[in-house]
Design a binder for these strands. Sequence first.
DNA 1: ATTTGTTTACGAAGATATTCGTATATTCAT
DNA 2: ATGAATATACGAATATCTTCGTAAACAAAT
Lengths: 130, 130
Amino acid sequence: MSAGKQLKPTESELEILRVLWEKGPSTVREVHEILEQSKDAGYTTTLKLMQIMHEKGLLQRDASSKTHIYAAAVSQENTQRQLLDKMIDTVFNGSASQLVLQALGNHKSSKEELEKIKEYLNEIEKQQRK
Amino acid sequence: MSAGKQLKPTESELEILRVLWEKGPSTVREVHEILEQSKDAGYTTTLKLMQIMHEKGLLQRDASSKTHIYAAAVSQENTQRQLLDKMIDTVFNGSASQLVLQALGNHKSSKEELEKIKEYLNEIEKQQRK
DNA sequence: ATTTGTTTACGAAGATATTCGTATATTCAT
DNA sequence: ATGAATATACGAATATCTTCGTAAACAAAT
C-alpha cells in the first residue's frame, strides 16, 4: 500500500539530483554554484526547483538551521534504472540488447570496462544454464 | 552549413515516429488508429502533432492527394543514438559501460542476444589490439 | 445540388516545466 | 539596535507540450 512510486524527474531536476549524488547533502547556494558553471539561471530559480522537488519527495531537507540542507531522497541507481527502463521500452521497442549494441558501438570504452562487461555476460549465461 | 541538426522529439512525437517506422508512410487516420489502442486522444490531436512535426522537419509529407501521406524524416537509428547519447551523458555521467551493465542486469535477454553482444565485444577488443 | 462524412487548418485552452521579481525572515557584524 | 547580507516563501510571467473545438475545403453518395 502507498508504495510511493518514484516519479520521473524532469531535465532540470535531474541536474540537481546529479549534484547532490556527487556532493552529498548541500545547501541551495552550493548546488546553485555548481549549476552556474554549466548553465545560467538565477539563484531563486534553483531554490524554487529544489523546493518543488522536496514537495514531490525527490529531495529531503533539514530545516533545523536557518540555511536548509537538501539531500537526494531517491537513489542514483533507482533513478537510472527507471529512466533506462523507460528508454528501452519507448525507444528500443523493449529490446535491452539492441540498446546495448548501440551503446557499445558509439562509445569508446576502456579495455577494463569491456572486460567487466564480458565477465558479467559469462555470469549471466552460467545462471541461465542452471 | 545548415547541417540541420535533428532536434529531440518529445514523448508524443516519439510515439508517432514509432508507428511510422514500423508501418511506413501512412495517413493521419492510420497513425491515429494505432495510437488509439494504447492511449486515448482525439483525431485532431494526432493531426496537430503530425503537422507540427512536419514543420519541425521530423516528418515529411506528400500532399498531392487530398489525404496527406506522412513519413518519418529522421531515421530510427539516428534518433535512438541521439537519445541514447543524451542519456549516457546526463544520467550515467558519460559512462556507456555503466549503462550497459545496468541494462544487462535488469532485463532478461535471450541466449542468442547475449551471444551477439559477446561477439561484438570480441570484435571491439580485436580492433583495439591493432 | 444537397447532404453526409472525412480531411486539413487554425486558434486557443489546459497542463506542465522553467524562470524570476519581490516580500519577508533571519543572521551577523557593527 | 541598526544595517547589510543572505535565506526562504510566494506568486506570477514565460515557455513548451498537449489537447481539442470549430470552421473551411473537399469527396462521395443520394
